[in-house]
Design a protein around this nucleic acid. Structure first.
Lengths: 242, 242
DNA sequence: CGTGGATCAATTGTCGGACAATCATACGAT
DNA sequence: ATCGTATGATTGTCCGACAATTGATCCACG
């Protein structure tokens, strides 16, 4: 028997409303695509003011559980977009002063097995996407910004080839954090673009041949190159990411 | 020259306010722990109504960028708590109908290298935490719920030993998704508890000896056991997680 | 001088109502 | 059937208000 009292949690009404709606969404009583009742109706059902309902909706909206189709004002239930979710994670990591070293270490762990899984699970369409992504990098890498975005997109295309949503979502924040620091590095290292292109090419070939081991190996080299690039550019890898 | 027009984005005011404040937090002009100006003051500065400011604050609040110290009503800038961030990711994954197989595959990729890194980077305090977590599982695993939570906490303690916040945050959603399905499995497989305890013990020993390879190996077995458990319990691993 | 309590101002949570802009829908003209 | 139009519904934003609770200040007291 505990002698202590539970810390009584007095949640504001807007929070209760938010969790109540979120619950209905998560247990599928409100299904995806279905439109949400109007704010007035929700206010009536919950017995609160419309302002309160609106504050709750803002929370759900920022979690991606509700959204509106572009050019519409009606709110409908939606599955959170991976990019948006990952953005929240990225911001959290930035606030925690993550360093490039930490991001790089995570990439080192995650990407090679992803490449291996992609080689096993890829479909013809996946392979085409990987090839296209590599081609985009090769043919349009002069502008720093575009080069970096294409490099990240290549990782995304490999991730999609795994057909594992968990991996895609785990990978996304890393890519978002990689982009800004890669942008600094890539212009200071002459051979960077060429080496990236080669690695992408090899990875694609391995994925095409369904050679998991080879895909993993080249991805390992690819990631290791990032680290080397930072050393060559004399960027301190233990600096926090902007 | 592009002939197309950019899709003009008309954001509602509450969104502009939210991003404006978020920007100031992320670039450290508003530092952590600092208290946020009162709603009225913000409304004055942005030239909008207090209701609008409040909607913006709800968004920031759900992103964890602002929060209040328990038992206080004053909002202050805060770094997002990993648990809360991961919860958003978990919900996103649930909405995307992730299967146990996907979660398990991600764990297979992520946990062994984490264990290896932990063996390298751990401090004495980290080791103590791992041992405590393992001990808690061994000594308090009768109640299903507690056993499962302790099993997850063991992973967390190993994650902390890596001193890599990216890894900790990447791992957290996986653990949150593992818990409910592990809860179903662990009671249907006789030897599950014992095998988990042994694996934890071996991993701890390897971490203590700073033997990365051994830590990785035992973690690999540990994760593989989960899969076997599901087969023994005759749970379809391609079922979506509740 | 520090401590504790009492007082007052500040702040938040919630409410009610209001209005313009915009979107959804139904209807009628072509 | 397609297109444009009128009407109603819904959202975004504003205003003002009030109770409850917290933060801050000050004073008495040991």
């Amino acid at each position: 028997m505990s002698v202590e009292f539970d810390q009584l949690l007095l949640e504001p009404a807007y929070r209760k409303v938010a969790t109540a709606i979120a619950e209905r969404i998560l247990d599928r009583r409100l299904r995806e695509g279905e439109r949400l009742p109007p704010e007035m109706e929700l206010a009536r059902q919950f017995g609160v003011n419309r302002s309160t309902v609106r504050e709750a909706l803002r929370e759900l909206e920022s979690n991606g559980l509700v959204s509106r189709r572009p050019g519409s004002k009606l709110m409908s239930v939606s599955r959170p977009q991976p990019g948006a979710v990952a953005e929240g994670v990225s911001r959290a990591l930035v606030m925690h002063d993550v360093t490039f070293l930490e991001v790089w270490e995570a990439l080192t762990m995650l990407e090679p097995p992803i490449a291996e899984a992609a080689a096993r699970a890829r479909t013809a369409a996946d392979l085409a996407q990987c090839l296209e992504a590599a081609e985009r990098f090769s043919s349009d890498n002069e502008a720093t910004e575009r080069a970096v975005l294409h490099a990240a997109d290549f990782f995304r295309s490999v991730g999609r080839a795994t057909h594992n949503q968990v991996l895609m979502l785990a990978q996304e924040p890393l890519l978002q954090l990689l982009v800004p620091s890669l942008q600094v590095m890539i212009d200071q290292v002459q051979q960077a673009r060429a080496r990236i292109a080669v690695a992408q090419h090899r990875i694609c070939e391995a994925i095409k041949a369904r050679d998991g081991q080879e895909a993993r190996n080249w991805m390992t080299k690819h990631i290791r190159d990032f680290r080397k690039g930072y050393e060559l550019a004399r960027i301190d890898p233990s600096l926090r990411i902007a």
